[in-house]
């Protein structure tokens, strides 16, 4: 008597159920939760604009500073939220492992996917708003923009897969990750361009694939943007696929330990 479902069918139905459930709690969890999702980057952008326009009146050559900041914030947020939200996925969904169909990797992947959808939506609304306010937000190389955003999202997913295993097995890893993300924000060049840096420091900071990705995005938005040497989309791509591979490998290796109590 073997009337069980195939593994693929089970996984697909679990992903669908998890996605709908996560989406509901994300969008209707707290009062006007969907509004806060949109307000967060807008408030972030507004504060930075006020600070930068009063403290330092430096204008980026060939680039609107508002757009410059918006690209940096949206790109970095996409990576950060994909990584951080999926890192917390296992502990947040522990109750669901009561259903053995639900595996640790499922909750992480579904969360990262939902985060990508949310950030895509937030990005579209932000750019639409900027466009209404009179900024020129139409990229001259849309294909690169889409590719780099997709890479940011997948890179965040890969890091999230790795951190979710780390955080579950060694809780200290999660705490350290939270500490690291703050300086990473500054080191990724959300607020500045590597062209502003001294040559020695510039090469050092360009080792960060996120910094490279943000530069690629800016260049794809404005054709007149001056890009420093040593930026390559394959660098970010390599990091992305390495992190995905390593993250999935960790999930395979530690699968029983992750749902065990």
């Amino acid at each position: 008597m073997d009337n069980t479902r195939s593994s693929v069918a089970i996984t697909l139905s679990v992903w669908k159920a998890l996605f709908l459930r996560e989406a509901i709690s994300r969008v209707s969890g707290a009062r006007a939760a969907w509004l806060w999702l949109l307000l967060e980057p807008v408030a972030h952008l507004t504060i930075l604009m006020v600070i930068f326009s009063t403290i330092r009146r430096r204008i980026m050559p060939g680039f609107d500073f508002v757009l410059f900041l918006a690209i940096g914030i949206l790109g970095f947020n996409l990576f950060r939220y994909s990584a951080m939200r999926s890192m917390a996925a296992i502990s947040a969904n522990r109750a669901l492992f009561a259903y053995r169909q639900v595996k640790a990797v499922d909750v992480v992947v579904v969360r990262a996917f939902l985060e990508g959808v949310i950030q895509l939506f937030v990005g579209l609304v932000t750019f639409a708003g900027l466009s209404l306010a009179g900024f020129d937000v139409v990229p001259h190389d849309p294909l690169t923009v889409i590719t780099v955003f997709a890479l940011f999202w997948l890179f965040g997913t890969g890091i999230g897969l790795m951190l979710s295993v780390g955080d579950t097995l060694v809780p200290e890893i999660g705490k350290v990750a939270h500490l690291v993300f703050m300086p990473l924000y500054f080191l990724s060049g959300v607020l500045f361009s590597p062209a502003m840096l001294a040559p020695g420091l510039r090469e050092l900071l360009l080792l960060n694939p996120l910094m490279q990705g943000l530069e690629l995005l800016r260049a794809a938005f404005a054709s007149g943007y001056h890009v420093v040497a040593g930026i390559d989309i394959y660098y970010l791509t390599a990091f992305t696929f390495a992190s995905l591979f390593f993250g999935l490998a960790l999930h395979v290796r530690f699968a029983p330990r992750l749902v065990m109590q």
């Binding site: 073997d2 159920a17 459930r21 709690s25 109750a95 669901l96 009561a98 259903y99």
Partner: peptide
């Protein structure tokens, strides 16, 4: 064979969602 989850051990329900939403989730998973 098809084995149920261990019933009545308190888990498997998400507090912020309604009973109906929880039931939908379990139905979809199965």
């Amino acid at each position: 064979c098809r084995v149920s989850w261990p019933m009545g051990f308190g888990g498997g329900l998400q507090g912020s969602l309604s009973g109906r939403q929880n039931a939908k989730f379990v139905a979809r998973v199965h």
